[in-house]
Amino acid sequence: MHELSIAKDMTTIIGKAIGGPRPLDRVNVTIGPLSGISAESLRFCFGEVARSEGFGEPELVITLVAARLVCLDCETEYNAKDFYDGCPSCGSINRNILSGREFTVDSVEFDEGNS
């Protein structure tokens, strides 16, 4: 479980972007299925790290995006959250991965008066 060190990297990135720790309401992140990140573990670790580093108790809003794949047999482009299912048109599992490794801190939100 590496989400603890990841959570610390996240607070470093957030701190840099907003000029230091302050209580947050919401942190928005995007995770792809090929990022190797477990959303559940991240939620747990991020809560602990955020609180201990002075970012309050923000809600971690995780957008789980699908991977985008292209079938090498029939050229259909399709989305997948797991990789057991093949192409929806022809069933083939020959494919190229176009995206799915996303893992970004998108934005943070806080109350105007909450500083």
Partner: peptide, 17 residues
Amino acid sequence: PRRDNKVDIATRVMSRN
């Protein structure tokens, strides 16, 4: 940025590594 209530960050978390 401290006066906005939403700050866009759009940073890859693995960028430091």
